[in-house]
Amino acid sequence: MSIDWINFTPWSAAIGGAVIGLAAALLVLVNGRVAGISGIVGGMLRPRADDFAWRLAFIAGLLLAPMVYAMVAAFPSATIAASYPVLIVAGLLVGIGTRFAGGCTSGHGVCGLSRLSPRSLAATLAFMAAGFVTVCVVRHVIPA
């Protein structure tokens, strides 16, 4: 392993992270809800009248963030290397996996670790380990 110094962006990463933490703080302290994206989206698939609007509003905020960001600075372009078939398989796995796990990078990784939850620590270690192995296989094992 060597550090990718060219692409490493410590400051923007830490500041962006703090802004994410601020959003999670706002949602829990004002709305009493955990900012877990997979849970917020998943809960909309079994709609309850009194529990739908806030979820939709949160997702609308996520969707509009690029437009609001672009008012101040140029939206940083994303490089999506995965092919469409790979994206479909990956999306299905992420959808079903996060719901079984009861959380994703935000619910377990950010909010769960902030709550010092042992469940979320176990989940975070598991999905990171699976991610490390998957990228290793795709980038280094299969091409060789």
Binding site: A90, G95, G97, A123, A126
Partner: peptide, 16 residues
């Protein structure tokens, strides 16, 4: 569930 999620995350580089 977390392992399945991690595989999908590693394939595409996207989480929710």
């Amino acid at each position: 569930g977390s392992l399945v999620f991690g595989i999908g995350w590693g394939l595409a580089g996207f989480c929710p």
